[in-house]
Nucleic acid binder design. Sequence first.
RNA 1: GGCCCCAUCGUCUAACGGUUAGGACGAAUCCUUCUCAAGGAUUAAAUCGGAGUUCGAUUCUCCGUGGGGUCACCA
Length: 484
Amino acid sequence: MEDSKKVVTRFAPSPTGFQHIGGIRTALFAYLWARKNDGTFILRIEDTDKARSVEGSIEHLQESLSWVGIDWEYGPDKPGPFGSCIQSERLDTYIEWAQKLVEKGLAYPDPYTPEEVEAFRQKAQEEKRAFLFRDHRPETFGAWDGKTALRFKVSELKRYEWHDEARGALSAGPEALDDFILIKADGYPTYNLAHIVDDYNMGVTHIFRSDEWISSVPRFLSLYDAFEIEHPVFVTLPPILRSDRTKKLGKRDGAKDVLDYRKEGYLPEAMINYLALVGWNPGTDQEIFSLQEMIEQFAPGRIQKSGAVANEEKLDWINREHIKLLSSEAFWQHAYPFMPPWIDKEAHGAALQKIERLLRDRIEKFSDIETLFAAGEFDYFFNEPAVDAGMLVWKTLKNEADGLEKTRGYLTHAASLLTEVADKDWNIETLKEILMPYAEQEGKGNVLWPLRVSLSGKEKSPDPFELMSLLGKEVTMKRIAPNQ
RNA sequence: GGCCCCAUCGUCUAACGGUUAGGACGAAUCCUUCUCAAGGAUUAAAUCGGAGUUCGAUUCUCCGUGGGGUCACCA
């Protein structure tokens, strides 16, 4: 093991459906640490519970990770020198290792039926005690035939003290130790055994996993001892809490499939930027990171200890910041799928380029484009708006009997000023020079409001100069003074 | 109930034992403005409680309190 210095991390989910942000964050931290150290990142599938396996999970998982930009040296699609990365394809190894314990007298066949064990558990619960199987350990036991469940036999009931890169010094008393199942009656290993064997065989140096595993660590340590192997460095991540803080975030609480964020038009770089900041920070005021910057700055020692609530408003803001960083080409690549179907990429290409900046300022995520168009925003760049005569009149003129007439007068005059502007001078600055003196003379609301409304048909829209410059002279004149 | 972990603005968080407890999101107000958006400025907003150690605790120790996790032939 000359290259034992090389950092190897892994993400090892079970294929029970989609991944929510909690899982992806765990994967991200493990990934960042591997990349920062020029190490290896392994994607391992822990499918040792046949009943819970969900068809298609593995593909879905790979797609989720790929979306946010996480790649792996070894995974379900890429076996390593150690063999498959799918636990159900490594069963022989677990049996082999379990056998070592049997030979040492550190494992024994479970003499009870699951029902009997359940009865013990019930009793303990009624008596408000923690259930410990070792209280029921048989005095003697026969050979293991491989057809019954195999249990680990804790031999030394002691207090364990260990170090966690994120949490510091941790410890737990012998109450935390017990005889747990190594191999189930169906021949599959439990997580307890399988992850330890695999981590060892795959050369894993750092285990990133969430908070809920802390209480199991003493049992794992007793197993490492039984195998007489060293354990990897432990890095415990804080839980991600539901917004009411009453619980860890879970699928049942509406935690979303991370790919749902893609559907909503979040950028993957924003997604991981955001996730990195839930439970970690670089110690500076920097909030916006590229993946490369995260890799450079990540350190397990700065992982937070306490649970954090994921805040989607912050995600929205981070997404906006990343949208700002997008090239025009990249922007449209993300934006097109959310544009109304009647917009034609080719035919409307010029118009689309023009409204890019307007669009960027008005969306947090790309699906907001759908909302904007559904509300009729931006429609006036592509279709002639229907203008409501009542809307045309500025509020201070509304009470006057000849308000509409006056307004039409302002529009006619403005149109006459605009006809003087040459096509080549048709830009925001010139348009302002021409119109502003008149608007200031008559009252800006009186002139600018109806101009804008006649151009957009909307009470709310970008300002009239912006609209005129984007719509061009011909369309502008037609909308302001349709009868001329 | 046993064991374990955690505790700074509403949220994410910063702070060699010495700071007016900093930043960000969100909120509010103002500026810019014909409306919207964007942008700029400003404000409000926190060290869970009690002891102890110390000249001095957000920071160290202890005790409470609160929250979370775990106690599967699930991971």
